[in-house]
């Protein structure tokens, strides 16, 4: 369960968000909507520990009753997905998935890691493209592999920053469905930031509307 309490965000003495609190249960998706500049992405960055300089934020983040806002990004075990899938272009699709697996932490050897990554590619029917570079994939395939890569790193919570916005409407629907399935399977709290109201309906999630200091 991910919980944020009394979150405040200030940009050059101008408060953007005041006293925001919410809880996301395991396997649940919470959607955050709001106009540009209201602090959505900054909240996401605060949750991931990558808040840019110039912004002042405070608020307690607890993950399964453990406080994590004082931890660095690499210690938080957070999964992030952006508008662009950000598959590493110099690595093959398989290597991209292998990159995410913590072999030491999960007690896997080289062969087991490869089998795990290949099984994920097989889920998408992309085994044949294992040794190809990400340029060989379509937009939808890239989005799916990016999600699987994130989940392979065994995150404790997931942050989705408008991950469907660059997909065409048809593809968007199927990737949404795929994401929801995977999130349920992973059973971790997920925060989705979006501009698209259809995302809320499709994900069947709770909604927080941020409106320049008015949270609904």
């Amino acid at each position: 369960m991910l919980r944020i309490s009394n979150f405040n965000l200030t940009l050059q003495d101008n408060p953007l968000i005041k006293n925001l609190s919410f809880t996301i249960d395991n396997g649940e998706v919470l959607t955050l909507m709001g106009p540009s500049g209201c602090g959505k992405s900054s909240l996401l960055n605060y949750l991931s520990g990558t808040l840019e300089t110039g912004l002042v934020a405070e608020g307690e983040i607890t993950l399964n009753q453990t406080r994590i806002d004082n931890l660095s990004t690499q210690e938080r075990q957070v999964g992030i997905l952006y508008q662009t899938p950000l598959l590493f272009p110099h690595m093959t699709n398989l290597e991209n998935l292998l990159f995410a697996i913590d072999s030491k932490g999960q007690g896997l050897n080289k062969v087991q890691c490869k089998e795990l990554a290949m099984s994920k590619l097989a889920e998408l029917g992309l085994e044949v493209k294992a040794n190809n570079l990400p340029t060989s994939l379509s937009g939808g395939q890239k989005a799916r592999i990016a999600l699987l890569r994130t989940l392979l790193s065994s995150p404790k919570y997931l942050l989705l920053d408008e991950p469907f916005s660059k997909l065409d409407p048809e593809l968007r629907q199927s990737v949404r469905r795929f994401t929801l399935e995977q999130v349920k399977k992973a059973n971790i709290p997920t925060l989705l930031v979006t501009h698209d109201e259809d995302d809320v309906a499709a994900m069947g999630s709770k909604l927080i509307q941020l409106n320049h200091l008015n949270h609904k």
Partner: peptide, 8 residues
């Protein structure tokens, strides 16, 4: 961000 979020 992607890399560090995976624990690197």
């Amino acid at each position: 961000k992607v890399g560090t979020s995976m624990g690197y």
